[in-house]
Amino acid sequence: MGTGKSVLIVDDSSFIRNSLKTILENAEFNIVGFAKDGLEAVSKYKELKPDIIALDVIMPNMDGIQALRIIKSISDEVKIVMVTSVSAIDKIVESKNAGASNYIVKPFEEEKVISVFSRL
């Protein structure tokens, strides 16, 4: 499934960070780091250069869509999946237009997360 692809998990909730870590590690992804807000996500991206980023939208300091734009301006290679509770279609379109590969709405099913990440 994951075949060792590296993943950075960005969410201000430790509950979600831990849930995603468990799901993705069981699917053979390599979790290389965590960030709690958009600013930290940009910094961790530069440091760790992961293959994939799981990125929340509503976070303190810098939101996920701002972080998405900055990270994609650094490298278009990285795959970014928005993982958020915000289900409004305008946010999904905005994320897609800013370069997100996919969008998962919380609460998520384990199968959905694995399916989306495995296709990247």
Partner: peptide, 26 residues
């Protein structure tokens, strides 16, 4: 906190369908 975040975040989709655009705080 995340449970509440999921409830309110999901509500933004319904509000959008009613023509209302919302921003949420953490």
């Amino acid at each position: 906190s995340e449970l509440v975040n999921m409830i309110v975040g999901n509500a933004t989709g319904n509000l959008y369908d009613l023509g209302l655009k919302e921003l949420l705080t953490p």
